[in-house]
Simulated assay, not measured.
Amino acid sequence: MTDTIETLDHIRDGIAALAARERRFGDMFAVTGMPPLRRLPGGFPGLLRIVTEQQLSLASAAAIWARMQARHDPLTPERMLALADEDFRAVGQSAAKIKTIRALSLAVVERRLDLASLDQAPDDEIRRSLTAVPGIGPWSAEVYLLACLGRPDAWPSGDLALQVAAQAAFGLPERPDARAMARLAESWRPWRAVAARLIWAYYATLKRPLAARAGAPA
Rank of each mutant, 00 (worst) to 15 (best):
W139C: 04
A62E: 01
A121N: 04
A169V: 01
I136E: 10
L58N: 11
P122K: 14
A165W: 00
L56V: 03
S129Y: 15
Q120C: 11
Y144K: 09
D114K: 04
S60W: 11
S129D: 10
M80K: 04
D114T: 10
R127S: 03
D85Y: 07
E86L: 12
S94F: 11
V133G: 07
P77S: 05
F88I: 06
E86F: 03
T131L: 13
L56D: 06
V108F: 13
I126K: 00
R71Y: 02
L115E: 00
L106E: 14
L104G: 00
R189V: 12
C148P: 08
V109R: 10
P134S: 05
K97P: 01
M68G: 12
A182M: 13
A161I: 01
A180G: 14
L56M: 10
S94M: 12
S94L: 08
G158D: 02
A96Y: 12
Q93G: 02
R128K: 15
L115I: 01
A70V: 03
L83E: 05
A178C: 08
L115D: 01
R183D: 11
Y144W: 02
M181C: 09
S105G: 07
K99G: 12
D114W: 00
D177I: 11
E174Q: 15
Q69F: 01
D177F: 13
D159Y: 13
V143Y: 10
A62G: 03
P152R: 02
L118I: 03
R79I: 06
P134R: 03
I101S: 05
W188A: 13
S60Y: 05
A169E: 00
Q120G: 13
I98Q: 15
D87R: 05
G150F: 03
G137T: 12
D87P: 08
P176K: 12
L75E: 05
D73H: 15
L118D: 00
A61N: 01
L118W: 10
S105F: 13
R128L: 09
A95F: 13
P77H: 10
R189Y: 02
D153K: 12
F88Y: 15
C148R: 09
D123T: 15
A168P: 05
P176H: 02
D114F: 02
A84N: 07
L160A: 05
M68V: 05
A96V: 11
W188N: 08
L75R: 09
A166E: 06
S105I: 15
L81P: 06
T76D: 09
V109H: 00
A132E: 06
P173Y: 15
L83H: 09
A82T: 04
W155A: 07
W191K: 15
